[in-house]
């Protein structure tokens, strides 16, 4: 549903443009499109609370539809802020993000995790449209150049992230490494269980002393 007060013409136009861009992108990854077709017949309701935008996503065999209004049954409804959705979109473990994050989920979570996986694995083939416009030779060369640039950029960014993480954890010691934190949480949990067990033993002993004194 459109945000209150906004002319439906604007929201419908924005969704139409987004849907066209999404389907154009999906056409560049036939494998991803085939996987999405497996979700045909499902409807995902995405309810963003800030900014307030409600969108219904319907994957189809040939086209994926984005709707502002939908009256039928919804497979999965997800509610949260734009930041929460961005976190889910980029998550390496979407199930953990859904459980631990701020997103509110209603309905079947499995198709949503599948959808997130398909979107995350999209591998767009930019060569086809370039070849169509520029011809085989020039199109292929430009695509190769772009691929090399893209893979160099990805490698540089992942290397930068790794080095930044290492500096924060190991050199500056600003935050403990993940494994250390998990180990610490494990110890705390074990200690908590031992305290609870000790408390129940004390309780049992107290009851026994009380009954012996009577």
């Amino acid at each position: 549903m459109a945000p209150a007060g906004l002319d439906p013409t604007l929201t419908t136009a924005a969704l139409a443009a987004l849907e066209a861009a999404l389907n154009r992108a999906l056409a560049l990854d036939p494998a991803g499109q085939r996987q999405l077709a497996g979700l045909a017949g499902r409807t995902f309701a995405i309810e963003c609370t800030s900014p307030v935008v409600h969108v219904y996503l319907q994957p189809g065999a040939e086209r994926t539809r984005l709707l502002g209004y939908y009256d039928g049954p919804v497979t999965t409804r997800v509610r949260g802020s734009a930041a929460d959705f961005a976190q889910l979109a980029g998550a390496s473990d979407p199930a953990a993000t859904l459980i631990n994050g701020n997103l509110v989920l209603q309905g079947d979570s499995a198709p949503l995790i599948e959808l997130q996986g398909i979107i995350g694995r999209l591998d767009l083939d930019w060569e086809a449209p370039l070849v169509n416009v520029l011809g085989d030779v020039a199109g292929h060369q430009l695509a190769q150049f772009l691929r090399a640039g893209f893979s160099a950029g990805t490698a540089a960014s992942s290397s930068l992230l790794r080095q930044l993480e290492e500096f924060i954890h190991e050199e500056a010691r600003l935050t403990p490494p993940r494994l250390e934190v998990e180990d610490f949480y494990g110890d705390v949990q074990a200690l908590q269980q031992r305290v609870e067990r000790l408390q129940s033993r004390l309780e049992r002993l107290r009851k026994r002393i009380r009954s012996a004194g009577q």
Binding site: P8, T9, T12, A13, A16, G41, L67, G68, Y69, Y70, D71, G72
Partner: peptide, 18 residues
């Protein structure tokens, strides 16, 4: 070209299904 947007909105509100 806005008539296409008006018609798209009509389709959405129709809630027509397979």
């Amino acid at each position: 070209g806005i008539h296409r947007i008006w018609k798209r909105f009509t389709i959405e509100l129709s809630a027509v299904r397979t």
